[in-house]
Design a protein around this nucleic acid. Sequence first.
DNA 1: CTAGATTGTCTAGCAGTGCTAGGATCTGAC
DNA 2: GTCAGATCCTAGCACTGCTAGACAATCTAG
Lengths: 197, 197
Amino acid sequence: MPTQTRRERAREERRTLILRAARDLAESEGWDAVTTRRLAEAVDYSQPVLYGHFKNMDAIADAVALEGIEELTDVFRAARSSAKDDTAGLRALAHAYLDYADQHPAVYEAMFVRRTDLQFGRSETPASLIDAFNQIRSAVEPFGTGDAETLTEVFWSSLHGLATLTHGARLRPTHREARVDLLVARFSGTFPPAAAE
Amino acid sequence: MPTQTRRERAREERRTLILRAARDLAESEGWDAVTTRRLAEAVDYSQPVLYGHFKNMDAIADAVALEGIEELTDVFRAARSSAKDDTAGLRALAHAYLDYADQHPAVYEAMFVRRTDLQFGRSETPASLIDAFNQIRSAVEPFGTGDAETLTEVFWSSLHGLATLTHGARLRPTHREARVDLLVARFSGTFPPAAAE
DNA sequence: CTAGATTGTCTAGCAGTGCTAGGATCTGAC
DNA sequence: GTCAGATCCTAGCACTGCTAGACAATCTAG
């Protein structure tokens, strides 16, 4: 009997259980509420069990971040696939990005705000992260004249800035659509218009 | 004898002493290292003294943030005053912003990253914060066609995104200048160029 | 079926955190 | 010199991340 496999499967299930609990807790009460005790209580095990799966609390947040990045690539793909031209593609990607950040603020925070051990732009970078970056790159590249990598970084930064400042209540709660319109116009080259009122 | 004034002056001095210590500690070891005990030790008082000046630790970070915002307006003013035209002004402001974030990462974090009780875009917003926002607005407004407020928010978001992603090691450590060039080009309308190689 | 080794899990505890109640001490007014 | 009031500190609470060591369940071998 593959008793080893059963064990490993059970172990894997418990790991996802922990991640699920961490994510739910973070989304409902913020990462500050994700403590070892509350997390252990949520999965109905003692605290040391957590350390059998993850090196420390930060590693749990990193794992949630990885999940989120994979989701994000799917969201990007879906958004871009239904766009009729490059400009619509860029706009769709921008909206998809900001919507995701809005709907999963804790996951977004784990991905792009919290200090993380995840490697960005290196050889050990997770494939899904590279994938997500390339999605942005493909969307913005048609409007570039020089280094596509730099263009991608700048456009991503703009989206990231909008996402975080919005979430931190540092921008007006209104004018959301107008901000995206403006950003896309500046990057898609549909600016300046011939003569705007 | 104005014993009351002397007392109040001593009180004020101690307050700035606390802020100075908090800022130094945050810049050298990060905000996580700024604990009540370490801070109290740095100013050579016991922890409860801190609470005589500030409601809690977050209020200390907020006070540091306010200091930073005032510095930032000065930095903006200096940068823009030495620019020969609007485009140069925008570029100078962008560089000044990113340089400040780079040189004072902890203060920047207190201002625009950490959760804060500071009010943004409301009637109770500190004057220096409005001032800083208006500096950005003045710099980018010449290149706007519609709502200047929205334009300012978007440009600021882009700068903020660049600052935070750079600091979090999520962008390439190189190409810093190229990113600023590209951003300024997109916002100043010097894009698309007639025919770029 | 039993003995022993391995694996899994928990209890209890350490050193640290923000924050505060209460008592001690020091200052200045009369 | 006495006494009220301001000032400050000691000690403690409830929490945090994390871990050592005891205990129990499970699998392996004879």
